[in-house]
């Protein structure tokens, strides 16, 4: 073995200063952490659209008999309602809510319970003293929205 300086480590046929080796090691760790983060994020994104228990995330909502905003109403649900998602089909989730089975727009279904206005401000919300017809119409409202977003150029 040839003589090397004190700051080098001999690897087979390659001189590798300790500093370079340390930097390489740190780079490898950061790459693997980033990769792990990406795997976690993509798993979370996948979990969002996997069957199982999800939650309704708007004030009120409509469970439709078939896929379609104008399809017959099966029942009206409120924010935070747990839903058993059977499967996601394009823009819709096929769900079971209590004894009812039907369809809800995918964008209104969350994997985790989201903050609900009725829960955050219950006494203020109760001032409205909503009638059943108002709750029904509020549930219909979200399916009538045309939702969009401008993208970053």
């Amino acid at each position: 073995m040839s003589q090397l300086g004190n700051n080098s480590i001999q690897m087979e046929g390659v001189k590798m200063p300790k500093v370079t080796l340390a930097i390489t090691f740190l780079l490898l760790i950061s790459v693997s952490i980033t990769a792990a983060d990406e795997i976690i994020e993509s798993k979370q994104a996948e979990a969002k659209y996997l069957p199982g228990i999800h939650y309704y995330n708007q004030m009120y909502g409509t469970v439709h008999l078939q896929k379609g905003s104008d399809a017959e109403t099966v029942t009206t649900i409120s924010c935070g309602q747990p839903l058993r998602v059977i499967e996601f089909e394009k823009e819709w989730g096929n769900v079971k809510v209590g004894p009812y089975t039907g369809f809800i727009k995918k964008e209104y279904i969350s994997a985790k319970k989201t903050p609900c206005f009725q829960d955050d401000y219950p006494k203020f919300f109760n001032l409205l003293n909503l009638e059943l017809s108002e709750i029904y119409h509020w549930g219909r409202l979200y399916d009538q929205y045309i939702i969009g977003k401008s993208r970053i150029k």
Binding site: L141, Q144, Y145, I146, I147, G148, K149, S150, R151, K153
Partner: peptide, 24 residues
Amino acid sequence: GIDSSFATFLEKINIPEKKFKILL
């Protein structure tokens, strides 16, 4: 197709990342 046309319009006049809801 109003959602996509309005989104395109906003991008054209440099208003990115703007969410909107239209009720007909």
